[in-house]
Every structure is written in structure tokens, then in C-alpha cells.
Write a protein that binds this DNA or RNA. Structure first.
Length: 204
DNA sequence: CCAGACGTTGTT
DNA sequence: GTCTGG
DNA sequence: CCAGACGTTGTT
DNA sequence: GTCTGG
């Protein structure tokens, strides 16, 4: 569940699509965008975002102690699969599966509970995600049927066809997935933002 | 005390 | 780094 | 989540 | 078949 997602927007399109209301103001506010270095790994817009790729999340700007940030929400690129804070060495070699965090038992987790306590909440912003049929599991994975799950859109917009909504970012309905994030530091002090998304046993 | 986990997915 | 199991 | 590796020897 | 890397 939730192991592949789609985000083809550029940063400027994302902040436009993520405008939000503050209290009862008429005016919509745009989140800030912060281009984290993340050890040189860049966000590359793609219809096929995999765990360990870099993709955008939204966090409260209070976590970034940066006076230049005007908005109370910030979009920043982060690595999808939380890197444990205690991990040393190559950031890819922690050996844990952390792209998803199960809601059940989250408060008992050595890895995730401290993030809850520190308020390290985030939201993964995507156009949608993919679900493969589990029924034909014996088939080669490349030949299994796949569904694209996304938000309902207004009449003008067909989400599979970018030309139908180019320049209409404000009308685009993106999907927001609850998650937890952290900053991991390597031996020389360079950092990577990483995150996990919270999953729950399906009703269906 | 030390050693080892710390996490998830799916199906039988 | 910190908790759990032995 | 899928795709792709999964291994070693020696020399240029 | 199963693990790793993206």
C-alpha cells in the first residue's frame, strides 16, 4: 500500500496548488518553498516516485527556524523513507523499511514515537498513488494491473492529462498524506530531510 | 549485564 | 541513541 | 511499490 | 526465492 506515487509538478506549481486559508481570511496564502540540499539529491518531478526518491512535503515553518520564511507552511524536498536519527555511515544502509509507518502501535515505536512527541508531523503532497492488484500476484510484476488513485477533479481538469490543467494549479486537487519527518546528519554534519507516511489497515 | 532491535509489505 | 529480551 | 541482482577469477 | 536499491 502506498509504495509508488505521482508528482509531476514543479516547485512553483506545487506552492500554487497548495494555497490555503488562514482563519476566515478571503485571501489564500501560498506556502514558502525551501530548496534543501539533501546531500545533493534533487527532487525530480515524475509520474513514478519510488521510496528513497526525493519528493515534496509540507511542514510547519516553525521547524525550520528561518527568519526569512514568510509563510507558516513550507514545502521542502525530502527523502521518502525515514532515516533513523541514530544511524551512522551510509544513509542508505540502515536496513529498515520506513516508507510506511503503521498507525497501529505508532505510539509504542522506538523509531516513530519520538517524532510524534517532538511534533515532527508532515504532509506528503502528491497527484495520486498506484495500487497493484493483489489477486494476480503470480503474474510478473510488470504485467500486473495497476490503478491510479487520485482526488476527484472539477470538469475542466483531467489529472492524467497535464495539458488540461496547465496553468490551473489553483484548481488542482492534490492528495495530502499524513506523515512524520526528521533531519538526519552525517559525520561531517551534512543533512537530509526524510519522512514516512502513516498507513492504516484497509477497510476494503 | 550485553546483544540486538529499531520496520513494512503480501500471501499461504 | 535507547529500549527489550535473554 | 517494482526491477534487478544474486558471483568470482585474473589481467589489461 | 529473496534481498537490495531506487
Amino acid at each position: 500500500m502506498c509504495g509508488r506515487s505521482c508528482m509531476t509538478l514543479d516547485p512553483n506549481e506545487i506552492v500554487c496548488a497548495c494555497k490555503y486559508k488562514v482563519n476566515n481570511d478571503e485571501e489564500l496564502k501560498e506556502p514558502a518553498y525551501r530548496n534543501e540540499y539533501n546531500l545533493g539529491k534533487k527532487y525530480i518531478p515524475s509520474y513514478n516516485i519510488a521510496p528513497t526518491d526525493i519528493c515534496p512535503i509540507i511542514v510547519s515553518s516553525k521547524h525550520l527556524n528561518d527568519d526569512e520564511i514568510s509563510s507558516n507552511r513550507t514545502v521542502l524536498p525530502a527523502l521518502w523513507s525515514l532515516i533513523p536519527k541514530w544511524h551512522k555511515g551510509d544513509y542508505r544502509k540502515h536496513g529498515l523499511t520506513t516508507n510506511n509507518a503503521r498507525f497501529e502501535g505508532l505510539t509504542d515505536s522506538k523509531l516513530y514515537k519520538p517524532l510524534l512527541d517532538r511534533g515532527k508531523r508532515c504532509v506528503m503532497v502528491i497527484e495520486g498513488f498506484y495500487e497493484w492488484k493483489t489477486t494476480d500476484l503470480k503474474a510478473k510484476s510488470s504485467e500486473r494491473s495497476v490503478y491510479f488513485v487520485h482526488m476527484p477533479q472539477n470538469d475542466k481538469i483531467k489529472i492524467e492529462d497535464k495539458s488540461s490543467w496547465n496553468g490551473l494549479c489553483e484548481d488542482l486537487k492534490l492528495m495530502y498524506i499524513a506523515g512524520l519527518f526528521d533531519v538526519w546528519n552525517d559525520e561531517v554534519g551534512d543533512s537530509i530531510y526524510s519522512f514516512t507516511i502513516i498507513t492504516y489497515e484497509s477497510d476494503i
